[in-house]
Deep mutational scan, measured.
Amino acid sequence: MDVFMKGLSKAKEGVVAAAEKTKQGVAEAAGKTKEGVLYVGSKTKEGVVHGVATVAEKTKEQVTNVGGAVVTGVTAVAQKTVEGAGSIAAATGFVKKDQLGKNEEGAPQEGILEDMPVDPDNEAYEMPSEEGYQDYEPEA
């Protein structure tokens, strides 16, 4: 019985440690998101679009440190934060509304985080759909 109880105690310690790591990862992701939003706020009209992409990228980098179902929630929060940063930029006159959601080359930025393969159960990952990809044929 002692062996059984000791095993359960060790398992509990492992769960607590994993929860603490997840909590730490979420806190880091939130900190990076805040950094990115402050970065966007300090940019001029020309830099705002690039700044919004930076927020998304920093958040995406930190999301990889967070495991399990938390990833889905962090990704949703990050996307809403990026959308909010863009709205703030438009409201303050840093950028025109028609410039939001495009990178410096004018290509749409939507789907940055949505296409990231995420499995809350950590069982399997699927690649994003290939609808947006084109076949590449090298020139002879």
Rank of each mutant, 00 (worst) to 15 (best):
D119P: 14
V70C: 03
G7R: 15
D119N: 06
D135W: 13
D115Y: 14
G67W: 15
T64L: 14
D115G: 13
K60S: 03
Q62R: 04
V63K: 02
T75R: 03
S42C: 04
I88D: 02
T64Y: 14
G86E: 07
A17Q: 14
K60F: 02
G31V: 04
T44I: 12
A27R: 15
Q62N: 14
V77G: 05
L8G: 00
A89K: 07
V49F: 10
L113Q: 07
V40I: 09
N122K: 15
E83W: 15
D98Q: 08
F4E: 00
T44M: 11
V71Q: 09
Q24I: 15
E13I: 02
V48D: 00
H50V: 03
P128L: 14
A89D: 02
S129C: 07
K21H: 03
A90I: 01
V82Y: 11
K60L: 06
T59F: 04
V52C: 03
N122H: 06
E13Q: 13
A53I: 14
G86S: 15
K10Q: 04
G73P: 02
K32I: 09
P117S: 06
G41M: 12
K97M: 05
K21C: 02
L113S: 06
V37N: 00
V15R: 00
G25W: 02
K6T: 07
A19V: 10
L38N: 04
E57A: 11
T22E: 00
K6I: 01
D119L: 10
N122G: 02
E139R: 13
P138I: 02
L100F: 01
V118Y: 14
K6Q: 04
D115I: 09
K12Q: 06
K96R: 07
V26H: 00
K32N: 02
K43F: 06
T59S: 06
G132N: 13
V77I: 15
E131W: 15
S9V: 06
K34S: 02
T92R: 10
E123T: 08
A29M: 11
D2A: 15
T22F: 12
T22C: 04
K58D: 00
G93F: 03
D115C: 07
P117A: 04
D98G: 08
K32R: 12
V40M: 13
D115L: 12
G47V: 05
G84K: 13
V16I: 05
K60W: 13
Q109D: 03
A30Y: 15
Q24N: 13
